[in-house]
Write a protein that binds this DNA or RNA. Structure first.
Lengths: 212, 212
DNA sequence: CGGTGTGAATTAATTCACAGCA
DNA sequence: TGCTGTGAATTAATTCACACCG
C-alpha cells in the first residue's frame, strides 16, 4: 500500500484529534469536523481515510474508536519502536523533555553525547551514553529512529554512524542536508529557515496562500 | 511577483549555501553544485533562481556574490524586522538560544511569558516582558513575526493576541492548528508529528520516496 | 436532507529535454 | 563542450461534483 508522505503526516494529525475526541467521549465524527480541526478540506480528510481502507457511515460519519484503531494499525508497525537522541545540548534536552512528556508510545529511550560531563547522567529520565556506544545500544534497545541535535558540522558524521548502525529513520535538527542511502528516511526541521520563511510571508501582505 | 512557498523555502537554503561559498572565497557556482548541497535537482535550482529574475552565465554559472544579493533583496523587505518569542519554557529558551546564536539578521529581540519568575529577566540576551506588554512592544520594536512556544492549550489565545496586535507571521511550535485570518501566515513545526512520520517511514523498508 | 466514497477535473510542483551561447 | 533558461511533458496533490444511502 503506497501512501504519500503528506497523507502520513495528516493521518498522524487525525489520530491526535481522534484521541482528544475519545477523551471527550465523542463517539462519531464527520470528515468536516476533522477537517476543521486540522485546517483542511473535508474532501482531503475523506481521501486520506480512504487511503488506509477505513469506511465510515454516510449517516453518522466515522466511528472515533474504530477509526483511531485503523489509523494506529496502519501507522504503527507490530514491534515497539525505540527512539534515540544524539546531542544533549540545550536544544537536545528540550526536545527530549518535550517529546517524553507526551503520552505517546514514541519515547526517546537513549541519549548520546561526546561531552564527558554529560555521559552517564540521566537527562529527563533518559540515560546519556557516550556516542561510541550507539551501535550497541541500537541493538539492545531496538532503536528504529534517531533524532540529530548536534551542531551543523557534526551532523554528517553522526548521520553516517546512524546509517552504519542500521537505523532507517532520522529526524534532523541540524541546518545541513544529510547524505544518506536512499532507503534511509530523513525529515529535516530547520528552525532558522522556517523563521525566514515566516518573515518573508509576514511582509507580503499576502496573496500567496499556504499554511499547511 | 508570485512565488510558491516551497520556492521561498529553497531560496532561503540557497542563500545559506551561498554565504558558505562566499566565506570559502568561491566566486561562481553552478546550479548542480547548489543542487548537490540542497539535495535537489539542478533543474529545480534553476527554476527557483529564474523565479526571482536573476540570470547566470551559461559558461561560469552563477556569480556567488551577485546571486546572494539578489536573493536577499528578494527575500528581505526594506525595513529591518523584529521577531518576538512567546513562551519562555525549556523549548522557548532553546529556540531563542539556537536562533540568536546564528549570524542571521533575524534575531529574537523580545520574549514574553506570564510566569512572574521569568518576567523582566534577561534570557539569552533577550529581555522577557509580561505577556500583556506584547501589543506595546510590537509597536516599539517593530515586530513582524512571532514564535509561539507555549503549551497547546494556550496557543490559540496567544495567537489571537498576536493577530490583534497586527503581526502577520507566526512560527508555531504548539501542537494545535491555529485559526487566524487568512492574511496571517502560520508555519507549524510539530515535533511530535515529525517523529511519528520518521518512525513510520523507518519501518517501511522504503519505497516511498521523500525527504524534502 | 446531509453525510460518504470516488471518478474526473483541476491545479501545483517537478522534471525533461533541448535551443542557444561563449 | 557544458552550462543556462525555459517550453512542454509529466507527475503529484488537491478539489470538484455527484451517485448513493439510511
Amino acid at each position: 500500500m503506497l501512501v504519500s508522505e503528506k497523507t502520513i503526516e495528516r493521518l498522524c494529525l487525525y489520530r491526535r484529534f481522534l484521541r482528544e475526541l475519545r477523551v471527550q467521549r465523542t463517539t462519531y465524527a464527520y470528515s468536516h469536523q476533522l477537517a476543521k480541526m486540522a485546517g483542511l478540506t473535508a474532501a482531503q480528510v475523506r481521501r486520506d481515510i480512504m487511503a488506509i481502507g477505513y469506511y465510515g457511515s454516510p449517516v453518522r460519519g466515522y466511528e472515533v474508536e474504530k477509526l483511531l484503531e485503523s489509523i494506529s494499525d496502519f501507522l504503527d508497525g507490530p514491534d515497539s519502536l525505540g527512539v534515540a537522541l544524539i546531542g544533549v545540548g540545550n536544544l537536545g534536552r528540550s526536545i527530549l523533555a518535550y517529546l517524553n512528556r507526551r503520552n505517546s508510545r514514541l519515547n526517546v529511550t537513549a541519549a548520546f553525547d561526546t561531552n564527558p560531563e554529560k555521559i552517564h547522567r540521566v537527562i529527563v529520565s533518559c540515560h546519556c551514553f557516550p556516542l561510541e556506544d550507539y551501535p550497541r545500544v541500537v541493538r539492545e534497545k531496538n532503536i528504529h529512529s534517531t533524532i540529530i541535535a548536534v551542531p551543523a558540522d557534526q551532523a554528517q558524521p553522526v548521520a553516517d554512524l546512524i546509517v552504519k548502525s542500521g537505523v532507517k529513520g532520522i529526524l534532523n535538527f541540524a541546518p545541513v542536508h544529510l547524505s544518506v542511502p536512499e532507503e534511509v528516511f530523513v525529515e529535516n526541521i530547520d528552525m532558522a529557515i522556517a523563521l525566514e520563511k515566516v518573515t518573508y510571508f509576514a511582509q507580503q501582505d499576502n496573496k500567496a496562500r499556504a499554511e499547511r
